[in-house]
Amino acid sequence: MNKTLIASVIATLLTSNAAIASDETTELRKVITQQQEVLKSLEQRLNETEKKLEATADQVEVVAESEGGMFANTTIGGYGELHYNNYEDQDAKIDFHRFVLFFGHEFSDSIRFFSEFELEHSLSGDGKPGEVELEQAYVEVDINETISSKVGLFLIPVGLINETHEPPTFYGVERNGVEKNIIPATWWEAGLSFNYKPVGGVSIDGAVTSGLEVGDDFKIRNGRQKVAKATAENLAYTGRVKYTAITGLELAATVQYQTDITQGGNNFDAPIDKADATLLEAHAVYQVNDFSVRALYARWDINGDEAKALGRDEQTGWYLEPSYKISEKVGVFARYAEYDNNAGNSDSTAVESTSVGVSYFLHEDVVLKADYEDLGGSKDSKGFNLGFGYQF
């Protein structure tokens, strides 16, 4: 009896445990199944995230390629100036004198391109007052650490204004008469040039280029051909030495020689002899704190009976310009200048100019200008100029 009872109890317990184990196994399988579904969901989400990351990476690569591609080393700049001129015995004029764009590109660390494209007087074309001009378009190559070369269309290395003439870089609304009528800025030619820096603060330039072609009036400014199907029978040879080793000081001298400034007399009614011409220019700039002074002298000597008969075998000019920066935004200047395109004769034909003015800098690259000019000598007039200019 007792054995039978014990056996029954044991059997019951075994049966209960088996049932419990079976229930636990079923529950465990459900949990595993649920976890497997969660893992599948997570795996799906992970795949979607990876796809999104790949798409984002592709887009970033496209942007990077765009920013680091063919335009990565391309630069754009420019300048412009608006002038208002009011002189006695003349109608007052307002003129957007220059709108200029620069385009440059670095092909490598040693080869670069630069260009300057200009619209003068707002409108160009037949019967319009302005011109569209390509003033610079050259490739510069660094041959080594001290020698570089330019080939193409570039500014002649002479004077103060010719190579650096953005409005915020000089005083006065208009460019001074000496560098306009004697040098004559802005003056560009086509050819080949070299720059050599033997030591720090010393720079030597040499250039072989197209030259001027004056007419029968022998006016230098009118002789600029601007490399527009320019006559190139007689080339020009230019050399300059510049010294800047002392802080605040610049000394420079330029000489140019042209074998025939008339290019064979194409603009003359009758045959003429060759008129070789030599330009000499020297200038100095000295700045101490907020005070600076500029001085420049330029002279043409032209051989030939035709130039001598007009008194234009010698053409000279000079000016002296002190200035003072009152504050970061305000600068004042005074200038006395003389130039004479008929210096070879005995008459008093020099133009004398006395100017005073102020520049107000809204920004270091944006300036408002005003000046008063008193003209004497062969010109007798006075008036004032207002201007606005920028560079970027």
Rank of each mutant, 00 (worst) to 15 (best):
N2G: 09
D23M: 13
E24R: 15
L42S: 10
N47M: 09
G68F: 10
N73P: 02
N73D: 11
T75L: 14
H83R: 13
Y87E: 07
I94Q: 10
V100C: 10
S110L: 13
F114Y: 14
E120Y: 10
S124A: 15
G127E: 06
K128H: 11
V132M: 15
I143V: 14
E145R: 13
S149N: 08
K150Y: 04
L155K: 07
H165K: 09
E179C: 05
E179F: 07
W188I: 02
E189A: 01
K197A: 12
S203R: 13
T209V: 09
L212K: 04
I220W: 07
V227M: 06
A230K: 03
A236D: 02
Y243L: 15
D273N: 12
A277Y: 02
L280P: 02
V288F: 02
N289S: 02
N289D: 06
R294D: 01
N303G: 05
A307I: 01
W318L: 09
S323P: 00
I326L: 15
V330M: 10
A334S: 08
A334K: 00
R335N: 00
A337W: 00
A337D: 01
A350H: 05
V351R: 06
G357L: 00
L368Q: 03
D371F: 03
D371Q: 06
K379L: 14
G387S: 05
G389F: 05
F392R: 14
